[in-house]
Design a protein around this nucleic acid. Structure first.
Length: 949
RNA sequence: GCCCGGGUGGUGGAAAGGCAGACACGGCCGCCUUAAAAGCGGCUGCCGCAAGGCAUGCGGGUUCGACCCCCGCCCCGGGCACCA
């Protein structure tokens, strides 16, 4: 980087250079810190401050998605959103709001742990060092954060409340009638009093303690269950789905991953499916993100239908379908290979009528089912998905009865039916379902159309609407024929309910949330097990459960192909921690601690609440502080942060988990807001070019030059690719580089002026100089570069300059409110460019310009503000307001179009009548009409004149 | 395959249905300088000497007027993917 702005010896002594910028920036960052400039007053508690200039003002909570402090530090892409929120927050402070803007760290997580395993350095050491580095980098950028509110999820004072919230969730259940979570004690009270029927019948008093415990645990919102998870023996841990690659191996280490049933903690997020879906309508979020959440939740309306099976001692097969109207066309039933009824249903010999294709070539159904299950289990998820077109399955040798036709229909198992969705069983209707059609063709099963297809569906399933056909029961008691799909659905559900064959039902694609990890660097669970293995919640008084020190941070690893191995968590080896004697109210007893830790998402589920009251030792957040900063504003407003800015990569997981926790806290009365994030904004990504040489090695991107449309590294031509910034791609540019070369203000202005905040764009270092020149022009407009004297004059501005100023103020305000920072900066540049030809800059322009610049370039603005004679920070100075009288011009210039092309223009007084404008326009283009009479003349007031010939 | 979001100069991007290309980078010319850099000023969509013509992915349509609205394609980016 040889073109960095090194001031030459003959640079004017008072020019705004990177060196001067650095001095100014350091000075103001120190002052802001000393003065506590960005401290936002709370209504109550230690952060209350009645004397603050914004105490009692209208509040605004501006939030960033907090970062994971990685060892690599920040590159220029990371702060884009942070600069955006900081600019917005600074603007809103000047516009009179009490703005809360803070930054924390999502600091538990795998990279620090893996580094610890490799080097023996404690994850806390690494993580804290990284946090310090991030803090220094953010400070260097001039972030106006309230540093008293900075939290990290690894702080014991933070995670004790993460554990506390876990206990709230563990100790509650979802009341489907009330549609909200309630304390588990209320459930027990209802069972005791008989208000609520005890599952399985009988009375509560008749049940033993362990029996009661099973029923209660079945209701908890946090529960332990045996569930299929991604088990990676090579790493010794279970993995989240997103940590598994497309070919079924671990993202880190490339080890095989197996689906295993393991005892894990889960959270009953599915109970909130409906509310998570409905409340999206109350949020000011980008539609694509809402859509992704809707798809993820995947609500399907249909029916549960019970198909009696021929071995009458076996329970009926319950299926879920969205098309109960097509039941007359259900010619077979399919269960997921893992379905629990399969073992009971499977026959010992092939019954009469078994077609060859159904047996898979096996001698009897037991062998066939066994073989098919084995084959299905050996397939990775990806393999299962890869051959979605080739349908496989096997007949179990048993039949079900179609409840409406009374006909026996064969029961199959097939991997196109998923165990985890609906009931894990379907009624197959090949006439109206493409997958069932494909399966029916392979297995030679009957196809009955029950909806009249429109043209073009010969040889294909028809999934559209139309009148029902072939849908009359043999006894004539039920007929759907002629009904449209919607009516047919209603009619059949009524029939099913009347006759005891099923009922209307809603199913979600959303699954309960796997909440435990076999890792060290996470929040310990506040849970112990008694000698019976029952999980017991620790009382609040025993929080926090501190993460113990261990010698070995790594989970036990195994032969990568040893699918039968079992996880051994790092904490489980800490015997003197695991084994514990506690008095939980019934005398001292021995217990065993939970040795899993929480997933990295836990802390990010509620951190925005802790910013509100970071030092509170008695509550996770004081209700008055929460209500002030996040409470609903009436109407349909769900409350939450006023603005949440972050990347779209968190569209589903983080945002859904956080909404879920928040709703539980709301139900239990701990917060007044229904949603955590009222308005969401996805900033774009800063991407970069990377270059590879002929051997496909990356070369230093900064050294590549373009010649005649090709790129060269030295004399070698290289290939350009476009994507992320990364160390291995040798294309990283850091904010530190930019601050050294131009100063933080230039960097901030550049990032905000590159384009709309929500759009991804390529980084281009050589373009940064444009923002630098802009700030230099602003500086030069107010300060003489040679003498350092002020160039501000007290005489009034000339009329055009004054009008330009007020037009700028008006436009900039609108742009700031609309988060259109790029066009706001363009307007400020135009105003500045309009000042350069003046002999001196009038104060009436200089002051508003400096104030409008302050959100983007706060340091230079503070410095100039001080030079303008002010002795306090401009943080709480009023943002300029345009004079409406100066926004209307005296005259208007109209373009005159003939047949859609501009052929002339006229200038008329702003208050001219339409008739005057018309006459003037016709006069102006009379020669071009060549005497022809225009057919039509359209005058658009203040816009243009359109003439049609 | 399905569902979103996009395609505007050499580049990033501006344009309540109303003068397409604001602002910036780059490029060209000039000033300053012994010189270079920095800085400053001018020009810069394409074709054309010019008059003028052509231009917002492609093809239609609505409109006095379309980057913007409608229909059909093409391409790029993202999400989901046997969810019954």
């Amino acid at each position: 980087m040889t073109d960095m702005a090194e001031p030459a010896a003959d640079t004017p002594p008072f020019r705004y250079t990177a060196g001067l910028a650095g001095e100014i920036e350091q000075r103001w960052q120190d002052r802001w810190e000393k003065w506590g400039t960005f401290h936002a007053p709370n209504p109550v508690g230690p952060l209350a401050d009645p004397d603050h200039p914004r105490a009692g003002a209208e509040k605004l909570y501006v939030l960033d998605m907090f970062p994971y402090p990685s060892g690599a530090g920040l590159h220029v892409g990371h702060p884009l959103g942070y600069i955006g929120t900081d600019s917005y927050a600074r603007y809103q402070r000047m516009a009179g709001r009490n703005v809360l803007h803070a930054m924390g760290f999502d600091a538990f997580g795998l990279p620090a742990e893996q580094y610890a395993v490799q080097t023996g350095t404690h994850p806390r050491t690494t993580t804290e060092a990284n946090i310090e580095r991030y803090r220094a980098q953010l400070r260097r950028l001039g972030m106006g954060h309230d540093d008293r509110r900075s939290v990290a999820t690894i702080d014991v004072d933070f995670y004790r409340w993460t554990q506390w919230i876990f206990l709230q969730i563990f100790n509650s259940w979802y009341d489907d009638e009330a549609r909200r979570a309630r304390p588990i004690s209320e459930l027990i009270a209802e069972f005791e009093s008989g208000i609520r029927a005890v599952p399985g019948g009988g009375t509560w008093a008749e049940l033993s303690g362990p029996q009661r415990r099973v029923i209660v645990d079945d209701h908890r919102l946090a529960y332990v269950s045996e569930a299929p998870v991604n088990w990676c023996p090579g790493l010794g841990t279970v993995l989240a789905n997103e940590e598994v690659t497309a070919d079924g191996r671990s993202d880190r280490g490339n080890f095989p991953v197996f689906k295993r049933n393991l005892k894990q903690w889960k959270m009953r997020i599915t109970a909130y499916g409906d509310r998570l879906l409905e409340d999206l309508d109350r949020l000011d979020w980008p539609e694509p993100i809402k859509l992704m959440q809707r798809n993820w939740i995947g609500r399907s309306v249909g029916a549960h239908i019970d198909f009696p099976v021929v071995p009458a001692d076996v329970a009926p097969v319950r299926v879920f379908t969205t098309r109960p109207d097509t039941i007359f066309g259900a010619t077979y039933v399919v269960l997921a290979p893992e379905h629990e009824l399969v073992d009971q249903l499977v026959a010992s010999a092939w019954p009469d009528g078994t077609k060859d294709a159904w047996t898979g070539g096996h001698a009897n159904p037991r062998v066939a089912v066994e073989a098919y299950r084995k084959a299905a289990a050996a397939k990775t998820d990806v393999e299962r998905q890869a051959d979605t077109k080739e349908k496989t399955g096997v007949f179990v040798g048993a039949y079900a009865t179609n409840p409406v036709t009374g006909a026996p229909i064969p029961i199959f198992i097939a991997d196109y039916v998923l165990a985890g969705y609906g009931t894990g069983a379907i009624m197959a209707v090949p006439g109206q379902d493409e997958r069932d059609w494909a399966f029916a063709e392979v297995f030679d099963l009957p196809i009955v159309r029950t909806v009249q297809p429109s043209a073009g569906f010969d040889g294909k399933a028809y999934t559209g609407d139309g009148p029902a056909i072939n849908s009359t029961a043999p006894d004539g008691g039920l007929s759907l024929d002629g009904l449209a799909v919607t009516e047919a659905k209603a009619r059949i559900i009524e029939w099913l309910e009347t006759n005891g064959y099923g009922q209307g039902a809603v199913t979600f694609r959303l699954r309960d949330w796997l909440f435990s990890r076999q890792r060290y660097w996470g929040e310990p669970f506040p849970i112990v097990y008694d000698e019976a293995g029952t999980p017991i919640a620790l009382p609040e008084s025993m929080l926090p459960v501190e993460l113990p020190e261990v010698e070995d941070f790594s989970p036990r690893t195994f032969d990568p192909n040893d699918a039968a191995s079992n996880p051994e968590t790092p904490l489980s080896r800490k015997a003197d921690w695991v084994e514990v004697e506690l008095d939980l109210g019934d005398g001292p007893k021995r217990y065993t601690r939970e040795t899993n830790v929480m997933p990295q998402w836990a802390g990010s589920c509620w951190y925005e609440l802790r910013y509100l009251d970071p030092t509170n030792e008695t509550r996770f957040v004081d209700p008055d502080n929460e209500a002030y900063w996040m409470g609903p504003r009436g109407g349909n407003d769900p409350g939450g942060t006023d603005l949440y800015v972050g990347g779209a990569e968190h569209a589903v997981l983080h945002l859904l988990y956080a909404r879920f926790w928040h709703k539980v806290l709301y139900d239990l009365g701990h917060v007044s807001s229904v949603e955590p994030f009222r308005k969401l904004f996805n900033q774009g990504m800063i991407q970069a070019y990377a270059y590879t040489d002929e051997r496909e090695r990356y070369v230093e991107a900064a050294e590549v030059v373009e010649r005649d449309g090709s790129w060269f590294h030295g004399d070698n031509q290289v290939t350009r690719e476009y994507g992320k910034m990364g160390k291995s791609l040798r294309n990283v540019v850091t904010p530190d580089d930019m601050c050294a070369a131009y100063g933080a203000d230039t960097f901030r202005v550049y990032e905000m002026s590159m384009g709309p905040l929500e759009v991804s764009r390529p980084w281009e270092t050589r373009a940064v100089v444009g923002s630098y020149r802009f700030l230099q022009r602003v500086w030069r407009a107010l300060v003489d570069e040679n003498s350092g004297a002020s160039r501000v004059v007290e005489s009034p501005a000339d009329e055009p300059t004054r009008r330009l100023l007020h037009k700028t103020i008006d436009g900039v305000r609108a742009d700031m409110d609309g988060i259109r920072f790029n066009t706001a900066i363009a307007k400020l540049i135009e105003l500045t460019n309009g000042l350069t030809r003046l002999a001196g800059t009038p104060r009436e322009v200089a002051e508003p310009l400096v104030l409008m610049l302050a959100p983007f370039a706060p340091h230079i603005a503070e410095e100039l503000w001080q030079r303008l004679g002010h002795d306090t920070s401009l943080t709480y100075a009023s943002f300029p307001v345009a004079d409406p009288a100066l926004l209307v011009a005296d005259t208007v210039t109209y373009p005159v179009q003939i047949n859609g092309k501009v052929r002339g223009r006229i200038e008329v007084p702003a208050d001219a009548t339409e008739e005057t404008v018309r006459t003037a326009a016709l006069a102006a283009i009379a020669d071009q009409l060549a005497g022809k009479e225009p057919r039509k003349v359209i005058v658009v007031p203040n816009r243009m004149i359109s003439i049609v010939t």
